[in-house]
């Protein structure tokens, strides 16, 4: 408890490395869990498959979600996150290369909290990572976990 985990869903190892570096450079010391496709992301969140022994009461503070993913794409992952009561309140930030209008609309429709286009310029990328960490990990007040549990019991 108290540990604010970031879940990074990213299939491109370069992007993964750069993202981690950007977070690091911006002094974001939180634990970053990296999964490399949509199916793995869902497994982690719901404590199933390769993550069956994980304490599924511990949920990430924020999910950084790429859209174009192997097996299950980002939008579908987002849909399932929002459909499940255990994960429906976790902030999801879409972090992708695409600027297509359709992707933006679909992302927000399915309940994305934010949509960030990965800048090609690494300097800009660093800035974006800094803002992101600052906002979602420090400024933003997450839903208290107790409430989540109480919420669960009512069902």
């Amino acid at each position: 408890m108290g540990e604010k985990i970031i879940l990074l869903v990213e299939d491109n190892p370069d992007d993964e490395l750069l993202t981690l570096r950007a977070l690091q450079q911006n002094k974001i010391q939180n634990k970053v869990v990296v999964v490399r496709d949509g199916a793995e992301a869902l497994d982690y969140l719901f404590g199933q498959g390769g993550f069956a022994d994980r304490d599924s009461n511990v949920m990430p503070q924020v999910i950084l979600l790429d859209l174009k993913l192997p097996k299950i794409d980002g939008l579908e992952v987002l849909k399932r996150i929002r459909a499940d009561e255990r994960t429906q309140l976790i902030p999801v930030v879409i972090l992708t290369s695409s600027k297509e209008e359709q992707d933006l609309i679909n992302g927000y429709k399915r309940g994305a909290n934010s949509y960030i286009r990965k800048p090609v310029d690494f300097t800009q990328f660093l800035e974006a990572a800094k803002q992101l960490g600052l906002y979602w990990l420090l400024l933003n007040e997450p839903v208290p976990i107790r409430e989540l549990k109480n919420d669960k019991q009512t069902y």
Partner: peptide, 21 residues
């Protein structure tokens, strides 16, 4: 177009990012 938008930018990001690194 989608592929261009998404996939062609990724290597550019790597080039730029690692140059900076």
């Amino acid at each position: 177009s989608y592929s261009v938008s998404h996939d062609m930018r990724a290597p550019l990001r790597s080039i730029d990012g690692f140059s900076q690194v």
